[in-house]
């Protein structure tokens, strides 16, 4: 198997794994935030802000997996 075939198999699998992790994390974060908002609707704004920040951090992990193929593509193909 040459390098490109290996990469073609590895990237989707890696992205899928990253998506699983990010999905689990986001699900947990958002469900907790929703629960908290349900318990304390008057604090909904603050909870939402915190949730968005946390979601951005979690989501960034999946985004790294998404853009690493493109960076690798640029790095390897520009030689």
């Amino acid at each position: 198997m040459d390098m490109f075939t290996a990469a073609a198999f590895a990237y989707p699998i890696g992205l899928g794994l990253a998506a699983i992790g990010a999905g689990l994390g986001l699900g947990k974060a958002v469900s907790s935030a929703m629960e908290a908002m349900g318990r304390q609707p008057e604090a909904a704004g603050k909870i939402q802000t915190g949730m968005i920040i946390g979601a951005a951090f979690i989501e960034a992990l999946a985004i790294y997996a998404l853009i690493s193929p493109f960076i690798a593509q640029i790095v390897f193909l520009k030689k």
Binding site: A56, A60, I67, F70
Partner: peptide
């Protein structure tokens, strides 16, 4: 690094 990669990745994606 994370700040720039996050925005770039989301918009490029």
């Amino acid at each position: 690094l994370s700040l720039s990669l996050r925005l770039f990745g989301n918009m490029m994606g």
